[in-house]
């Protein structure tokens, strides 16, 4: 039974790698004795599917993983249990059942929203650079992959970009960046801003899929209610859902 889990990553633990996260998640399910379906074959592996990698050092309010569980008995309490089995800084906020044939996270996620702190230039300069970038018809970026250099126009991958305001050390940007055939990383966005900027705190705030002309999240509240499903949420999760915090 496929289950999708949403979690956040904050604090010191943001320095672990994607691979580390996978190992920590696998161990957490074993600690809780929640049986995961294993692949068949010479070297059976538990069936996990980790979505987009999160860069070492970046925080996130919207990470996802899919896991194939033997039973759904624990789904209600899963977010809370998992959070307790995970190291500090990883907080599971929700878990839902997926259709058996549901598309993978890699397939459905089309873009991500980021809070990006840039350090090294006054806010006026950053605002000017952002305006110029948004107005530019093309943004050639040199990329090196497997020793080969190629130039890619990344402008179409920058869906939205705005300056939020000053931080203690720099300036905060809010960006919506594509994750399809053409994609761009926060570090590359900083490079194409054409200022001598350093990356400060970076946080992924949302991952979005496309549905009926609009953007929805892989675990989305309104979507769930429409489908009539129940969603297990973690009452301990520090970041409440936007809709919920407005209601209360």
């Amino acid at each position: 039974m496929k289950v999708r889990v949403r979690y956040s990553r904050h604090g010191r633990i943001r320095f672990i790698s994607h691979r580390d996260t996978a190992r920590i998640m696998e161990r957490a399910f074993r600690k809780l004795a929640i049986p995961v379906v294993y692949s068949q074959g010479f070297s059976p592996r538990p069936k996990f599917s980790f979505g987009l990698a999160l860069t070492v050092g970046h925080e996130s309010e919207a990470e996802y993983l899919d896991v194939d569980l033997v039973s759904l008995d624990h789904l209600e309490s899963l977010p809370q249990q998992l959070t307790q089995a995970l190291p500090d800084g990883l907080t599971v906020e929700a878990a839902i059942q997926l259709d058996q044939g549901a598309a993978s996270l890699q397939q459905v996620v089309k873009c991500c929203q980021w809070r990006i702190e840039v350090i090294g230039a006054p806010i006026e300069a950053v605002m000017k650079a952002v305006s110029a970038l948004v107005a530019a018809p093309q943004l050639p970026l040199e990329r090196e992959r497997k020793g080969k250099t190629s130039v890619v126009d990344v402008r179409p991958a920058i869906l939205e970009l705005q300056v939020v305001g000053p931080t203690v050390h720099g300036v905060e940007l809010l960006a919506l960046l594509a994750n399809e055939d053409l994609s761009i990383r926060p570090s590359e966005l900083i490079r194409v801003l054409a200022l001598d900027l350093r990356e400060g705190q970076v946080c992924r705030t949302h991952q979005f899929t496309n549905a009926e002309g609009g953007r929805v999240e892989p675990i989305d509240r309104s979507n769930l209610i429409a489908a009539g499903a129940t969603m297990a949420t973690n009452p301990l999760a520090p970041s409440a859902w936007p809709a919920e915090s407005q209601a209360s």
Partner: peptide, 14 residues
């Protein structure tokens, strides 16, 4: 830490 290899070496939290 974001600039060095394997920064998880230096954060403790085990």
């Amino acid at each position: 830490l974001a600039q060095v290899q394997k920064p998880a070496r230096y954060i403790g939290c085990e």
